[in-house]
Computed example of a mutant assay.
Amino acid sequence: MDTSAVNDAAARLLLAYEKGETTAPVVETFPEATIADAYRIQQEQVRSWVEQGDVIKGHKVGLASKAMQQQLGVDQPDYGHLLAGMFHLEHQPISAGSLLQPRIEPEIAFVLGRPLSGPGVTVADAIRAVDFVVPALEIVASRITDWKISIVDTIADNASSGGVVLGSKPTALSDVDLRLAGCTLQLGGELVATGAGAAVLGSPINALVWLANTVGPLGIDLEPGHVILPGSMTRAFPVKAGDTVFAEMGELGTVTAVFSE
């Protein structure tokens, strides 16, 4: 795709945010679009948000588990940006109407204490860079009509980012085995899913390594204080106004998201 086409695709997605209306898949309008093009489209939107005063506060790895890849029909992870405006306080109402086709998924969020810059990042480097972890609920949302997304579509749409709620109990990596960390997810008081950290590329730390080594060659560094979402431990579940979502992750603690009109 040339620069004009990239800007056009980004403008269509930005308009979907602005109007609160979904748009056709990117690959329908731009069938020649590649994964590299999709990240250029994503970056153009991020540039626009930052110019308007928002701030990059981290990154997310999407589609890191087999459950999510199968649910959305893709075969590899992707990444997106987390902006300050995407963060919501636990227990405080989140406007469901401000999100397009929202779904929710439980994750173990990393908070970095040191910079992490790829390529060449190892598991040891990643562990050293993490300050602590907290339980999290990621809200994924799609500007693409009916979630008819390919890997190109979701990447272009900032990895289908919608929002994030962080729990308030920090845990040091030395105090938990992320592979064995279990999770139960309740929606409206009903148990809807269980999962474990091993569902995320074998361990959430592997997703952090993948992210650092993927974005590093693009000139993107993971900064101290950044929040990194490594991927969901279960499939994603639709949410609507009136829903309360509760995730319990054993020794990591709990996190709750509440949705309103």
Rank of each mutant, 00 (worst) to 15 (best):
S203K: 06
T34F: 07
Q45W: 02
H59Q: 15
G182W: 07
P230V: 11
I220A: 08
I155D: 09
N206Y: 06
Q70H: 08
T171N: 01
S65Y: 04
L218W: 14
V26L: 12
S161I: 08
A24T: 11
C183P: 00
F87E: 12
V245F: 08
A199L: 08
P230L: 12
L252D: 02
D175C: 00
A198E: 15
F259H: 06
G113L: 02
E90P: 07
T29C: 00
T29A: 07
H81W: 14
A16R: 01
V121G: 02
P217I: 06
G242Q: 04
Q101R: 11
A124E: 14
R47S: 14
E90R: 02
K66F: 00
S160D: 10
Q101W: 06
V215H: 03
V209Y: 01
L116D: 08
G202L: 07
A109G: 13
D125C: 07
A199T: 10
A236D: 10
D131V: 01
S48E: 15
I144S: 04
V26W: 04
G118K: 05
T194A: 13
V239E: 06
S232L: 02
A241R: 11
E248Y: 09
D177A: 07
V239D: 07
G85K: 03
E107Q: 09
A16H: 03
W49K: 09
P217T: 08
I108C: 09
I41T: 12
V239F: 09
I104S: 11
A124F: 06
P135F: 04
L89S: 15
G219F: 04
A241F: 10
A129T: 09
L218M: 11
M233Q: 14
P93D: 14
R47V: 09
L83H: 06
A156F: 01
A16E: 06
P115T: 08
T194V: 15
S168E: 13
A212P: 15
F246H: 15
V6L: 12
L15Y: 05
G219Y: 06
D54G: 14
D153F: 05
T122F: 03
V239G: 07
A9S: 00
V258I: 12
S4C: 00
L100N: 03
I144Y: 02
I104Y: 08
P102Y: 04
D157I: 06
D37E: 02
F259K: 01
A212S: 15
V176R: 05
V200D: 06
V74H: 01
T23G: 03
D221N: 13
Q71L: 04
H88D: 09
A5Y: 01
M233I: 12
T34Q: 00
L13I: 12
D175N: 03
G62P: 10
Q101V: 14
Q76Y: 00
C183N: 11
F110K: 02
T234E: 13
L191K: 10
L180F: 04
S48D: 15
L252K: 11
V255Q: 11
A159Y: 05
E223I: 05
R235C: 07
I205E: 01
L178F: 03
A207D: 08
P77C: 12
A198H: 14
T256S: 10
E90T: 13
H81C: 12
I205N: 02
S260N: 15
V164T: 09
L218A: 13
M233H: 10
P25L: 01
Q186R: 13
R128N: 05
A9Y: 08
G113R: 01
